[in-house]
Simulated scan of single mutants.
Amino acid sequence: MLEFDSVSKSFGGLHVLQDVNLRVPKGSIFGLIGPNGAGKTTVFNLATGLLQASGGDIRIHGQSLRGLPPHQITRLGMARTFQNIRIFKEMSLLDNVVVGSHRHLHYGLGGILLNLTGFRAQEQQAREQALELLRWMRLEHKADEMADNLSYGEQRRLEIARALATQPELLLLDEPVAGMNASEKQELMQEIRQIRERGYSIFLIEHDMRFVMGLCDEIAVLNFGRIIAHGQPEAIRTNPDVIEAYLGREDDDTAPEVLP
């Protein structure tokens, strides 16, 4: 579904990514891990058009994303959340999610100003779909509350609901359980599995190793801008290069022998 083909990214003389090759299969939950500063969020920013690659190509369904702005990439079926939550805090939960659906609405300015039947019908449909997405995220009972009143974990679930409102095929999650307690993490893990069961593919970055290992079908490991390992969780868990890069040298007495 999503391919990185020998992708590099430089900022001046700083090489953030070098010759990155990734394949995110359709229908999978694919994880990208690595130490702080490895370049993980840069991968997401390149995929979604916030940055342009210095070399190589990125494709979704075989179509190159080179030069495309974020809104056009969204139309191709990709949506994301951010490490730092970006919701409209002075809007209701329902309105936050309806915003995500607007790319699928086809009324013009005249329809809005004149309150035409087509405008009202599409807005009603968007609100019904938004309420269903809030139900998926266990937030429907707060649909009319202001987003600013939500807990941190609820705000993250709201951001996922809004991303799903764009009707993507591939959902990118940037550290989805950051700031959550153990119970919230387990609940979100189950919700992500359910999203996949509904036909979505998922590509996530996460620092919580237990979460990644318990959720992902495949994992790639990024270190100093290069992919150093790629495989199923068990292979990644015991890979000596991953242990050294992520947790310390194998001869370091303070480094665990395997990942959690």
Rank of each mutant, 00 (worst) to 15 (best):
M1V: 14
E3M: 05
V7S: 02
S8D: 06
K9V: 13
K9M: 11
F11G: 15
G12E: 07
G12R: 05
G13D: 12
G13S: 12
V20L: 00
V20P: 00
V20I: 07
R23N: 08
K26T: 15
S28F: 05
I29D: 00
G34T: 11
G39A: 13
K40I: 06
K40E: 12
T41K: 05
N45P: 08
A47F: 08
A47R: 03
T48L: 02
T48H: 00
L50M: 11
L51Y: 12
L51N: 15
Q52S: 11
A53F: 03
S54D: 11
D57M: 02
D57R: 10
I60C: 14
G62C: 09
G62D: 06
R66Y: 07
G67Y: 10
L68W: 02
L68G: 12
P69V: 04
Q72R: 11
I73F: 05
T74E: 09
T74C: 10
R75C: 15
R75L: 11
L76W: 11
I85L: 06
I85D: 05
I85F: 04
R86A: 15
K89H: 13
K89N: 12
N96G: 11
N96S: 08
N96P: 09
V97R: 08
R103S: 15
H106F: 07
L109I: 14
G110I: 08
L116A: 02
Q125R: 10
Q125D: 15
A126V: 01
A130S: 13
E132T: 07
L133E: 08
R135H: 14
E140L: 04
H141R: 12
K142N: 05
A143K: 09
M146V: 09
A147Y: 01
A147H: 01
D148E: 14
N149M: 14
L150I: 11
L150R: 01
S151N: 14
Y152C: 13
Y152Q: 10
Q155T: 08
R156M: 06
R157L: 06
I160N: 00
Q167Y: 08
Q167I: 10
P168C: 07
L170T: 02
L170M: 06
L171H: 11
L172P: 02
E175T: 05
V177N: 00
A178Y: 05
M180K: 03
M180F: 01
N181L: 12
E184V: 02
E184K: 09
K185F: 03
Q186R: 05
E187N: 13
E187C: 04
L188V: 04
Q190P: 04
Q190R: 13
E191W: 04
Q194M: 05
I195V: 06
R198H: 14
G199M: 07
I202E: 04
H207S: 14
D208V: 08
D208W: 03
V212R: 01
M213I: 03
L215D: 01
L215Q: 07
I219W: 02
V221F: 00
N223S: 13
N223G: 15
I228P: 11
H230L: 09
Q232H: 13
A235C: 10
A235L: 10
I236R: 00
T238Y: 09
T238V: 12
P240Y: 02
P240L: 02
I243Q: 01
I243L: 07
E244W: 02
A245M: 12
E250Y: 04
D251G: 11
E257A: 13
E257W: 10
E257S: 10
E257L: 10
V258M: 14
L259W: 01
P260K: 06
